[in-house]
Computed example of a mutant assay.
Amino acid sequence: MDEPGWAIVTPAGQFRFQGGTLRCALGKGGVVPATRKQEGDGATPAARMPLRRVLYRADRGPAPACAVAVEPLAPEDGWCDDAGDRAYNRPVQLPFDGRHEALWRADAVYDIIGILGWNDDPVERGRGSAIFLHLARPDFSPTEGCVALALPDLRRVLAAGLHGIEVRLQA
């Protein structure tokens, strides 16, 4: 039986939550066992990942209702994906000298970002960073390793009390 507040994600792009199934996008590298996840492989780790907090673009919509802390994004927010940097897999303020990604994007993909508990307690260099739950592109094209849902679906699962996701290797 699935645990209340937790979603099950399958390699076929199914996001199962509270008896329903939604379409999701996954990493372009497919789903890999957690022990094989590496920085830059484009894969989604098969793992149980709690939802730590949610970030959102206040200029593009209201704060989502959530069971976890919600914080607005700022233009200088980023995330370090440089395995050689001491801030690896942590939020950073831009400008930032190490390799990173900007969280304030021109497209809508990061208008809502669920920070998932992947490789963060403790951080192991090179095991992958910035595994988020975020908005899918209109065509549901693959992500860089994240799990992505359509905007209405993401808002709905967050409001329904999502606590985390479990990505599985098989359906």
Rank of each mutant, 00 (worst) to 15 (best):
G29F: 05
V31K: 02
D82G: 03
L116Y: 09
D2N: 12
A87M: 10
P64I: 08
P64D: 08
Q170F: 11
G20K: 14
A47I: 09
R53P: 01
G98E: 12
Y56D: 01
V9Q: 14
G61Q: 06
G164P: 00
F17P: 00
C146H: 03
R155L: 05
A159Q: 01
I112F: 06
E101G: 15
C146G: 04
D107C: 07
P62I: 05
T44D: 14
V31Q: 02
G161S: 00
V9Y: 14
R36N: 09
S141C: 10
T10L: 15
I112Y: 07
R60P: 03
R48I: 07
D81N: 12
F140C: 03
P11I: 12
W6D: 11
M1D: 12
R36V: 04
E124Q: 11
G19S: 03
M1W: 08
E71A: 15
C66M: 05
P95N: 10
A171T: 13
G5S: 13
Q38T: 15
F140A: 04
G20S: 13
L135C: 05
S129N: 06
L73Y: 04
M49I: 08
G117N: 11
D41C: 12
D77N: 14
R53K: 13
P75Q: 10
Q170N: 13
A47C: 11
F17C: 00
G5C: 11
P122V: 07
D107G: 09
M49S: 07
R23E: 10
T143V: 03
T35V: 09
R137L: 12
R155N: 02
G128M: 06
A34H: 06
V9T: 15
R156K: 07
L55E: 01
L116F: 10
F96R: 05
G128K: 07
P62C: 05
F140W: 06
C24D: 06
G42I: 14
S129A: 15
I131M: 11
A87L: 11
K37C: 07
L158R: 00
E144K: 08
L149T: 02
P64V: 08
P95R: 11
D2Q: 15
R127P: 03
A12S: 15
D81W: 06
H100W: 15
G128C: 08
E144F: 08
Q14W: 08
L158P: 00
A43G: 13
D77T: 10
G98R: 11
T35Q: 11
C24Y: 04
V157D: 01
A108Y: 09
Q18N: 05
D111N: 14
A63C: 06
G164H: 01
L151G: 02
D59C: 02
T143I: 02
E3A: 11
W6I: 10
